[in-house]
Nucleic acid binder design. Sequence first.
DNA 1: GCAAATTAATGATTTATTCAAG
DNA 2: CTTGAATAAATCATTAATTTGC
Lengths: 185, 185
Amino acid sequence: MPQAPSTRWCPTSEQLMMLEELYRTGVRTPNASQIQQITAHLSHHGKIEGKNVFYWFQNHKARDRQKLRRKLSRQPLQAFSQYSSSPHFLPQLHQTFQPQRLRQGEKVHEQRQGLDLLRKLEEGQCAWITSSPSGRERETVMEMDGGGSAFCRQLKTLDLFPTRSTGVRDECGTSMSASCSVLTS
Amino acid sequence: MPQAPSTRWCPTSEQLMMLEELYRTGVRTPNASQIQQITAHLSHHGKIEGKNVFYWFQNHKARDRQKLRRKLSRQPLQAFSQYSSSPHFLPQLHQTFQPQRLRQGEKVHEQRQGLDLLRKLEEGQCAWITSSPSGRERETVMEMDGGGSAFCRQLKTLDLFPTRSTGVRDECGTSMSASCSVLTS
DNA sequence: GCAAATTAATGATTTATTCAAG
DNA sequence: CTTGAATAAATCATTAATTTGC
């Protein structure tokens, strides 16, 4: 069939890796000259023009920031957990794990609560995660050394999460189906 | 009898299946609370602690990415590989980009170039960036056509990224060993 | 068949990056 | 410019698979 001559640049894996390598090592907003050089090099690995390089860095930088923000805004849901050995616990967990999105203006600072585990693990303050919760289900899921989860306010899940992706999301999953949550307090 | 002090967690098949199910359905980086919940549930199927869950997701995600990248790098789809992937190309580019770091006072100019570019692009004055960078630029930047080694004599590797290859390990094109090179002349 | 020897997986640690707040 | 937070990448280390000589 008369394949439409792809109207847009499609980076080869090598080009992509090289761009990412440059990005990883600090290049963010290359100037004209730099773009020219990059383009020259990458052109050995496939069709490419300067504007592609320019746009790539623009987009990559932006999406990186976006990803970070999203990452920071991941909030824990309410502790519920007496399903114990329910054979249906998985679906329930899923409900709890849907990515949460908070309001735009919400201060990022108070929203983190993610995994400072690593640090705590290394510092030995990881009782909460090191200890085996095997004994019984605790309804006070975490108590985290007093000050850890003060901002663990009540979230109200509004709805939906058709998430059923099979591929590898997370990274460039710019738009993962997310449920919408709102602070109710 | 001093039982083999199994030094590390060994997931039961049930635990593994549950973790994989969670992963398949989108869980990638569970936060503290979520880890607690997962741990609580999985503990019904065998000994387990929070950090095991944490590490499991870290590793699984990382190795998934790794697998994907390795797969991608195996499909270099252009015949331009006469230059193939020169290990020198990156360092050279980096060298070019080093001067990008400016002192506080004079930062504006460089930074603004990106915007200028965009403007030009949108205004149609982007001939310089749209045009394919053939020949000319290449010469000034890299001489490597006659055997890239000639270029290397002038380079001094700073070893920003020590290429400690443990040999055996995985990897391939994922992370090109990038060292920071500087002209010594 | 069966261990010792080898190799592949994968759990656990360490190290480097990144963004952005201070 | 410095530092905090939070990974992701790299790598170390141990367990499971498998191969191999008998």
